[in-house]
């Protein structure tokens, strides 16, 4: 922390700085020499055909997977090889492509879980029922309710997460991630399975998170409309390698990108023939 304030450089340190990261599964190079720099408040897209390595990139960036090479810095601290809860503590939050809520807990409880790390009471205070414990429980319950209010999810507060409609599950997962009070939020295909009305609501939600709350966002998404509309910069992955980086317009016109997408659909068409 002090190291950061001592810096003379006027450039803020990136919230997420991923340098030359690789990850192999047996013979498959799922991610190769991946580099990503996320500055505070940035909104970055990560796109690519299925199997390009986007989810693997998120898994490495959150400590779920250890990279085979490269280093990962979060807000200036090298967290390479650390466990997921350490990444969370330093301000990395995420959602999952295949939703991973806590199904047997209510929406409120799901979000409260995210608040434990920064506001939860310890074992002694809990068991002895000390005032500190009650204060912490009240703060956690209030903040979770507040957050659900901001994200317009208050109606769902007492619903069991396992009973939520699909689109609501996606939004509650985002709320739970925000409860960890992150510097950067990684969203893995948040619009997957949403209808056009719901994905419009999602665009509004992401704008509020990035704009009003000032949280940097990295967005993995297949819905190009959503990506083009939201992102300032887009990284394109293919077969674990970075194919292109640029503004939405630059990336859209890049022949290599067009080919990667067309190429896979052509191959798929070939397989089906």
């Amino acid at each position: 922390m002090s190291a950061r304030s001592d810096r003379v450089s006027p450039v803020p340190s990136p919230v997420l700085d991923c340098r030359g990261v690789s990850k192999a599964f047996g013979g498959v190079q799922a991610l190769q020499d991946f580099t990503l720099r996320v500055d505070p408040g940035a909104l970055i897209g990560l796109i690519g055909p299925n199997g390009a390595g986007k989810t693997t990139a998120f898994n490495v960036l959150t400590g779920v997977l250890r990279p085979s090479a490269g280093r990962i810095f979060v807000a200036g601290t090298d967290l390479t090889g650390k466990r997921p809860h350490v990444f969370a503590r330093h301000g990395v939050a995420r959602t999952f492509q295949n939703i991973r809520l806590f199904p047997d807990m209510t929406v409120h409880e799901n979000v409260m879980t995210g608040l434990h790390m920064r506001h939860g009471a310890g074992l002694a205070a809990t068991v002895l029922g000390l005032p500190a414990f009650h204060r912490s429980e009240d703060r956690i319950a209030e903040r979770a309710a507040e957050l659900l209010g901001v994200l317009r999810l208050s109606d769902l507060i007492d619903v069991r997460a396992g009973d939520l409609a699909y689109g609501d599950q996606r939004r509650v997962e985002i709320a739970r991630a925000l409860a960890t009070e992150p510097r950067v939020l990684l969203l893995d295909e948040p619009a997957a399975g949403l209808n056009p009305h719901e994905s419009n609501a999602l665009i509004g939600m992401i704008r509020r998170i990035n704009g009003d709350m000032g949280i940097a966002v990295v967005l993995v998404e297949h819905d190009m409309r959503l990506v083009m509309e939201l992102c300032q910069r887009i990284h394109v992955l293919d077969h674990g390698r970075e194919l292109a980086v640029g503004t939405p317009a630059e990336v859209q016109d890049d022949p290599r990108v067009v080919e990667a997408y067309l190429g896979t659909s052509a191959k798929a068409a070939h397989r089906h023939a």
């Binding site: 779920v64 809860h85 995420r94 991973r100 047997d104 807990m105 009471a121 429980e137 956690i140 409860a179």
Partner: peptide, 29 residues
């Protein structure tokens, strides 16, 4: 009872309900 009905207890349940997601929410498994 007190552990179960506390933030600590919720993190325990979270680990049971989804181990990976709980850790990504900052729960030290």
């Amino acid at each position: 009872w007190r552990i179960k009905h506390s933030s600590l207890g919720r993190t325990m349940m979270a680990l049971r309900e989804n181990y990976m997601a709980a850790q990504c929410m900052g729960v030290s498994a």
